[in-house]
Amino acid sequence: MNHAVFVVKVVDKPVHLNFKEYKTIEIKVQFPILRQKDSRSELTLLLWGDYRNDFLKYYKVQDYLIIQGTLTLKGYENGENKPKVIVKRIYPFLLA
């Protein structure tokens, strides 16, 4: 498994998706600091269930989050090959 933990910043509003009977959201996020010039700085988060509802209720664009999830490169539509994280846990991250 590709279990991962990241600190990310929400950069775009969530996109609502319907996948079979599940209601999911897809959120574009980026890493706060780039480590290398040629590295990718954006990820897409996939959330459903209680995490979807909590995100819509408590978080907004420009918030920082700690996320735990499974990293995948598999595209769900159009054969796209972008990194995505299927979120298992989500926490707020406060910067002082």
Rank of each mutant, 00 (worst) to 15 (best):
A4N: 07
L17I: 15
D38F: 08
L47E: 01
G75V: 05
Y76G: 15
Y58C: 12
E42C: 07
F6Y: 06
D63G: 03
F19L: 15
F55Y: 02
Y64L: 05
V7G: 03
H16D: 13
E26A: 04
V87N: 01
P92K: 11
V87S: 02
K37N: 13
I67K: 00
P14K: 03
Y51P: 06
A96R: 14
E77G: 13
F31G: 08
Q68D: 11
I86A: 04
F31W: 07
L65W: 02
V5S: 14
K57R: 10
N18P: 06
V5N: 06
P92D: 07
L47Q: 02
P92W: 05
V10P: 00
G69Q: 01
S39E: 10
I86N: 04
K57D: 10
E21R: 12
S39T: 06
K20Y: 10
E26I: 04
L34D: 13
H16M: 15
D54F: 11
F31Q: 07
L43T: 02
K82P: 12
K28T: 09
D50I: 13
Y64W: 04
K28A: 06
H16E: 11
R89G: 13
V15D: 12
G49T: 03
N18C: 13
K28L: 08
L43A: 01
R40T: 10
S39H: 09
V61K: 06
P32R: 04
F31D: 05
I90M: 06
Q62L: 10
I25S: 01
P83E: 07
Y76V: 14
K9W: 00
S39Y: 10
Q68F: 08
K74N: 08
K88A: 09
Q68H: 14
I27C: 00
V85S: 03
L34I: 14
F19K: 14
I27T: 00
D50R: 13
L94D: 15
D54W: 12
R40C: 08
D50K: 14
I86D: 03
L43G: 01
E77T: 14
L34M: 12
K37R: 12
I27E: 00
T72K: 05
L45E: 00
E26V: 05
G49D: 04
K9I: 00
V61W: 02
N81W: 13
Y76W: 12
K37T: 10
N81T: 15
T70C: 09
R35S: 14
I25T: 02
I67S: 01
Y91V: 05
K37I: 12
V29R: 01
E77Q: 13
L47W: 02
N53D: 14
L71P: 01
G75L: 05
G75Y: 07
L46H: 07
V11Y: 01
L94P: 11
E21V: 06
D12R: 09
